[in-house]
Computed example of a mutant assay.
Amino acid sequence: ILQKEAKDERKGVAERKIQSAIGFRQVIDLLSSEKKLIVGHNSILDIAHVYSKFVGPLPSTAEEFVASIRDHFPYIVDTKILVNVNPMLHQRMKKSSTSLSSAFSSLCPQVELPSRGSDSFLQQRVKIDVQVDNVRCSKWNAGGKHEAGYDAFMTGCIFAQACSHLGFDFNHPSVNIAQDEKLEKYINRLYLSWARGDIIDLRASHSNAENWRVSKFKYEKIVLIWNFPRKLNAREIKECICKAFGSTSVTSVYHLDDTAVFVLFKNSELVSEFLKIKEQLESDDGPVTVIHPLSKILEGGKTGAADYEAYKEICSSHISKVLFSDQAETVGVKSRTRPDPKGEASPETERREKTDKASDLIDAFLANRVKVEAAGIN
């Protein structure tokens, strides 16, 4: 009996430790089990991160990802879909950007700037009270964009305002807003690419991944560039590369954020060529470096570039930074050239290896000579 009690006690202690270690995972499990409506803005990456951190490794195929997301989070609304698809909300945006901050400014001006109240659109506004203590009340500033808490607040405000215009009465809320027909055309649709308008439909019983443009991407054709001059945009970066490698060398350029882009080349050979030329230009201080088309991208000497494997390495780290360039620096990933086919080292690599070996030999020789001289003195 005593042994059983001791065993049960140890088991109880272990279970309590496990429950304590689970932490925030309990919140995710509760949202999933209760089938709560998940609201986000341009949230495909947010959903993917939540899945990888609290559910399991990301599925290897798009079909599995869609099916698993639908099982765990059956009701998802992306407010970026709402403001783009709904004619009234889209008109309210006045052709401005549908970024989170722009949508918040356009749809919820009474929250961002309480003094604005003459707009007829605001006659249907949802009243939103912000509860803060006396100290923070005097310092209330609706400008903490890109802070997780404030981004969530802005997303919630946009969704509430959008629901009001869709005809939801918050004084008499429906039993299950997620299943209301007013949201039917907007629910369970996520932007896969905001630049090209590709959308994942989570409502489908099977994935139509073969029709997604991203499925046509060949990862070996992608170069990741980060920490380039902030003044450059995707179009200018593409122009620089096309001047160096030909007008058809680059298929497209996508911004990850203000500090990083994906460059999709026409073929994988151009990826290797780009990375090698970048390395050569950075190691040469001659006039060619100044007049070369890639000089604009390399200006400042801090530009990083690598293939898609580096991107996976950077993103797989437990470290998380707001800007991709900061993430890469913190993780410690540097620029790298792609190994030559068949595992053969490039001439540059061989030269460096020989130089390193020579340096090692010189260091060893000097160290040995010091020992000999010290022995002679003694």
Rank of each mutant, 00 (worst) to 15 (best):
V130Q: 12
G143I: 02
A62R: 15
S118G: 08
F73V: 06
C108R: 04
N141Y: 10
T79Y: 01
F121C: 01
G149V: 04
M93C: 00
Q161I: 00
P59G: 09
I158L: 02
S60V: 14
F121R: 00
M154N: 08
K80E: 06
D71N: 10
L89I: 05
M154G: 02
I128Y: 00
C108H: 01
V135W: 07
K80S: 05
C157I: 13
S101T: 09
L100V: 05
S101L: 09
P87Y: 01
Q161M: 01
R116W: 15
S60N: 15
A152N: 04
S118A: 04
V126C: 09
K145G: 08
N134M: 08
V77E: 05
G144W: 07
T61F: 09
S118Q: 09
S96I: 10
I76S: 00
V55Q: 12
P74I: 05
S60C: 14
E112Y: 00
R92K: 07
A62T: 11
Q123T: 14
S115A: 15
L122S: 01
S101E: 13
D71H: 11
F54L: 12
T61S: 15
P57R: 15
Y75S: 05
D129C: 04
V111K: 03
S138R: 13
Q131K: 10
G149T: 09
S52H: 13
S102I: 04
R125T: 08
D119H: 03
F159T: 02
Y75H: 13
K80L: 08
C137R: 12
S106C: 06
S106G: 06
W140F: 12
N134V: 06
V66W: 11
D119V: 07
R92W: 01
A67I: 06
M88W: 06
V111A: 10
S99Y: 03
T155H: 08
P59H: 14
F159Q: 04
A160S: 07
G149R: 10
Q110M: 06
N141Q: 14
Q123I: 05
L113V: 13
E64S: 14
S52I: 01
A148S: 11
V66M: 11
V77I: 11
E112M: 10
A62I: 09
D133F: 06
A62W: 14
L89T: 01
L58W: 12
T155P: 03
V85N: 02
E112I: 11
C108V: 07
S60K: 15
P57W: 14
F159R: 07
S97C: 07
T155E: 04
P74E: 09
R116C: 05
N86Y: 04
F153Q: 04
